[in-house]
Design a protein around this nucleic acid. Structure first.
Lengths: 347, 347
DNA sequence: TTGAAAGCGCTAACAC
DNA sequence: GTGTTAGCGCTTTCAA
């Protein structure tokens, strides 16, 4: 069992003062060669881990973190994120962490920019944000960098040179998972990729999923399947989808690349008795209803709650305990059916 | 934004000393009626959350936790638990927590009892254990209770009157998940539940899984399926299984209730070209190979690593930060196929 | 029954 | 450059 060393121990062993040890440990300069050597000699010998608790006590700082997330009223997909944020607030509040949520309209880049401006004025210690608009996100990331504000992102990754942390899912691979699922339900036939274009989602997400999906069937290289693609938009959603289904009598499976899978299920249920396998995304209540009824076969869970929660947790533990924030954390691609949907932990 | 109150603030507001406030907060007695009233009056008004960090600094106690887990050499299923334990050690060591692992032979109740005796002699602050032997587990739980040692359990739940925490999976429901999966792969035929009896696993686990599995098909109430059951044991495993498959030409699906699913896959692959859908448990390397090859269709992930890691994490956070330990934490029932197997987080 | 004071490990300000 | 010291919020001891 190893002894727990303190800086006092080190100071005594090295024959210097605690202050000097602290200076050496944190490269605060103003240390003579000889003192440096003495301290380092001791540090080499022992396994010193500064007590992360004591470190924090002193500063007595209240860390402020802002979360920037699309308004759940505009798109219910984001609601679980709020729960994750609230969990984090409850859990971390006692540590003197101040977490503030700012919403933006996910259909408006202007709203996104304004929300970020608001946040920047607050000068928080860190920001956790959903960078759904690629161009604008790069701009604000640059701003945060200049302001010296730490940034973590979740939901979707964007390319940014400087340090930035990401929590989300491997969308390409999740497309492959969907493909495999359909493949195991359906022996053959036409299989459709349906994009429900909400005109705000940067096409990148859906493209990644689509690529993964196609990649699976390409590798399979089987003449049993034909892959179709269709884009749907809301005003004439139902008529276009109905027409599409009518025109493809061999349609046996559908992959929907967004959380609006239930909209497709609604239509299928309405217009045909034929079994069409359906795989989509996210545990919205409407989706879950269809899952239990059997209209939707599988949902892929993107862990929105976890993403937000972990994003905050990592930031706080970084501030409080000097923990390293994982730079690119890919959450598992959870396959959900009617039987395990009720046992999902933390959404 | 609320002010962060300290006991000093409260003391000043109430017109008493910090010591008295502390006594009131922790019911340490020796407080006069009047002082109690004064302090409570203040406490009612403000939202006081003691700083969990400072609380811990003083005591400077090294918490000692023992983990009792089956020897991974005897059954490789337990290997991920070690990783979880090591993660916890790495992460929590700096907080002055001492975690010690003790193995027992999962085929020997004697070994289990001896290991516990060893642990009890050490008088740790808490114990995290896998109570695979029901009767013996109840005995040692009673011992720990008398010694005032906190106990958390994982992997399988046992009925014990006094306080005890559990982390694991809903086995009944996981049986239903397996059933649903087979149901979605296979349109009809004979479906077999195979128990691979390793004679140490308390039959309870497998029974729960079996019950859930049957429950699903009973509810389905379809004449398309016939449910068969068979127990296999190692010496004549292959011959018995071969005979079983030969005798059931309509066999279209198999559910294996243990992590030894790959053993069944090996045999199927060897003796027949017919597609038999196979669903089993756990991400052993051999299972993953079959999953990728297609001999196994789905695996259900029981999160062994997470179970051990969370068990330790909860105990430590309880000691350090007074967090409440969830008394019965059911981890999600993860469905794994060839595509999402590589993205599983923390095993 | 109560208040005062020391001290946990670390940081930071301040003398020397 | 370096040692000393005060102090973070809380617990615990000790004297009153």
């Amino acid at each position: 069992m190893l002894k727990k060393y303190t800086i006092r121990d080190i100071a005594e062993l090295a024959g210097v003062s605690k202050g000097t040890v602290d200076r050496v440990l944190h490269n605060r300069g103003k240390v003579s060669e000889t003192a440096l050597k003495k301290v380092n000699k001791v540090l080499d010998k022992i396994d010193f881990k500064p007590n992360p608790i004591a470190k924090n006590l002193k500063s007595n700082k209240v860390y402020r973190i802002c979360v920037l997330v699309p308004d759940p009223i505009k798109d219910v997909y984001w609601k679980p994120c709020l729960n994750g944020i609230n969990d984090a607030i409850l859990e971390l509040g006692a540590f003197g962490v101040n977490i503030e949520t700012v919403f933006f309209n996910p259909t408006s880049t202007k709203s996104f920019l304004e929300a970020n401006l608001l946040v920047q004025k607050k000068l928080p210690d860190a920001v956790l944000l959903v960078p759904i608009f690629n161009t604008e996100a790069l701009i604000v990331l640059e701003d945060y960098k200049n302001l010296g504000i730490k940034v973590s992102t979740f939901n979707n990754n964007i390319e940014f040179g400087s340090v930035k942390n990401f929590i989300g899912q491997d969308l390409f691979q999740s497309g492959r998972v969907a493909a495999k699922l359909l493949h195991c339900i359906v022996p053959k036939g036409d299989i459709a990729i349906l994009h429900i274009n909400e005109n705000y989602e940067n096409a990148v997400f859906m493209q990644e999923k689509e690529k993964g999906f196609e990649n699976y069937f390409n590798e399979l290289n089987s003449s049993d399947f034909t892959i179709l693609k269709e884009k749907l938009k809301l005003p004439d959603f139902e008529s276009v989808l109905t027409k599409f289904i009518d025109e493809h009598p061999n349609l046996t499976g559908i992959f929907v690349t967004t959380s609006k899978t239930y909209q497709v299920a609604d239509v299928i249920q309405k217009i045909t008795n034929k079994k069409i396998a359906l795989v989509g995304y996210d545990l919205l209540n409407e989706n879950i209803k269809h899952l239990k009824k059997g209209t939707i076969d599988f949902l892929i869970h993107q862990h929105p709650r976890q993403q937000a929660y972990l994003g905050l947790k990592f930031l706080v533990e970084h501030f409080l305990f000097d923990k390293k924030i994982p730079s690119n954390l890919l959450l598992p691609i959870d396959i959900i059916n009617s039987e395990n949907v009720n046992v999902i932990m933390n959404d």
